[in-house]
Structures are given as structure tokens and as C-alpha cells.
Design a protein around this nucleic acid. Structure first.
Ligand SMILES: [Zn+2]
Ligand SMILES: [Zn+2]
Ligand SMILES: [Zn+2]
Ligand SMILES: [Zn+2]
Lengths: 130, 130
DNA sequence: TATATTAATGTTATATTATTACACAGTGTT
DNA sequence: AACACTGTGTAATAATATAACATTAATATA
């Protein structure tokens, strides 16, 4: 059983925005959208994003510098994420595959090292763009 | 048999720098280091980097905004990369595992979609930092 | 050879993404 | 009270990346 994180005001505002978005959001687009709620500076956004990533409520899509809400409860503990990204429409989907996560968590490099933390981004065309 | 890419002057200068580096290099660090060779502007660096990534001579470490030379000949065709990253000393190693690349190339998402292009970054502690 | 085409370059300016530094407020502990 | 810890507000700046435009080099092909 893991600790529930009560979000602070800024964290909640920013999480709500990301969570209801159908696409990954960029930091300055978030900033623009929450200015009417009193969040005025980049740092306020980045601080909330950092915390939300840390507690697993959102993930950063590294190749896009954008943030998406987690819809996979197991991610909240393991920082092991996988996404598919459409190279045409930029649709991003979190992949939740027990087989994949098991394979990667058990993967050993040539030194025999295992990694519980990873980020995998698949690129291709989504159903619609195919 | 695939086409050999003859690098242009700027591409060669920048590739040489990255190739002989023991760590991933950032664009502006590259710029600083090649200014004595006549490359003066960020765009000249980014253009060369883009091309070098495109032809598979280097890879971008997305989570670090840094570039590393490829030492895995098969990457030159397939844009399917995997790295381990030490969270303490930031050492980055390209993973060259037939098993891993086979598993990922054959992975099907829940729509049955396969992806020949992916980027995987494992995080942990390297041998030295363990 | 001439000429069209493509790829690469040079330069300036600007856009986008992210962090540093400092002051302060709330909360819980000793 | 004194302290540690977390979050907030604000301004300034650093770091990363691209747009726009003019020019030159390399390549193809007529
Ligand atoms: Zn998740
Ligand atoms: Zn698509
Ligand atoms: Zn490679
Ligand atoms: Zn290390």
C-alpha cells in the first residue's frame, strides 16, 4: 500500500489540465492555460510538473518535451514507462503491457545489470494515420 | 548494401568531436568546441546533428538533450536504439542486445501494431557508482 | 557545356524550454 | 522559540532549438 499524495493547489490545477487533455501538453502551453487561475511564472509550472512526475501522476514524453497524465496505476510506483507516438498526428498512448514491462524489468545488460527504471518510446503511425 | 554517406565538412568536424568524446555532448558544448574550426552559429551545429542522426552516425539521448556516436553498426539502418544511463555519473552506454532488439521489434501493442522505430533509455547505477 | 536541382552553408534574429537566486509562508517537531 | 521541510511568488537569466533569408557547392541531366 503506497502513500496517497494530496496535491497542493498549483499541483492540482496543473494536474487537472493535463488529465483532461487529449494530448500531451507542453510546459508553456500549460502556463498559458493556467494564468487565469493565478499561476503566472514558468517556475510555478515546472515545480508542479516535477512533483507530479515524481509521484507518478504524470509522465514526461522526453522526445517531445511534453507531459501526459498516467492512466496506468502500476506506474505510480515503478518509474518504468512505455509509449507509442504517432509520427504524423503526434498522438501519444501509454502502453500497458504486462509482458513488456516484465521483459524490460528482467532485462540484463552485458554486465548482468538490471534496471527497474526505464523509458521507452515507440514511433510509428497510429490506427487513424495508417 | 546501403549507401555510404560521405560527410560534409561541418558534419565531419562535429562527428569527429562526438566520436572521440567519452560522454554524450550537448549542442552548445559542441558549438563552443568547434568555434575554432569556423563553425560559429547554433544552426550550423543543429543542421549537422540532424543529418548525423538521420543517417545513424549518432544518436540523441532524449532525456539528456545530448548526442553520442553510434558504435553499433546495425543502428545505421534501424532507428531502434537502447541505452543505459547512470543516474549518478551520467555515463551512457549503448546497449547492443540481439534479444532486446528482437523482442522490441516484434512487440505488438494492443491494436496489434508493431514498431520498427523506438528509443529505450534505462536508468540505474553503473558498475563504478554501484 | 549549360542549366536545373538539390543539398549544404553562413548569418541574424528569435522562439522555446528550463533553471538560478532570493524572499517568504505554512506545517509539524523538538 | 527554534528548526526543518515543503510549497509559493517573483524576477532574471540560462540552455536548447528553430525561422527566415541569402548564398554557395555538389549533382544530375539535357
Ligand atoms: Zn503511467
Ligand atoms: Zn496518427
Ligand atoms: Zn547505434
Ligand atoms: Zn555511474
Amino acid at each position: 500500500m503506497h502513500k496517497e499524495h494530496t496535491l497542493t493547489k498549483n499541483q492540482q490545477i496543473i494536474f487537472d489540465l493535463i488529465d483532461k487533455s487529449t494530448e500531451p501538453l507542453k510546459a508553456y502551453s500549460i502556463l498559458f492555460n493556467v494564468q487565469k487561475k493565478g499561476i503566472k511564472a514558468p517556475l510555478q509550472v515546472y515545480r508542479a510538473l516535477d512533483k507530479l512526475v515524481e509521484i507518478g501522476k504524470i509522465h514526461k514524453i522526453e522526445s517531445r518535451n511534453a507531459f501526459i497524465a498516467c492512466h496506468n496505476s502500476s506506474c505510480q510506483v515503478a518509474k518504468a514507462t512505455a509509449f507509442s507516438i504517432c509520427e504524423i498526428c503526434e498522438k501519444v498512448t501509454e502502453i500497458s503491457s504486462a509482458g513488456l514491462s516484465k521483459y524490460l524489468a528482467n532485462f540484463k545488460d552485458k554486465d548482468g545489470m538490471k534496471y527497474s527504471k526505464y523509458n521507452l518510446e515507440f514511433f510509428g503511425l497510429c490506427k487513424k494515420c495508417r
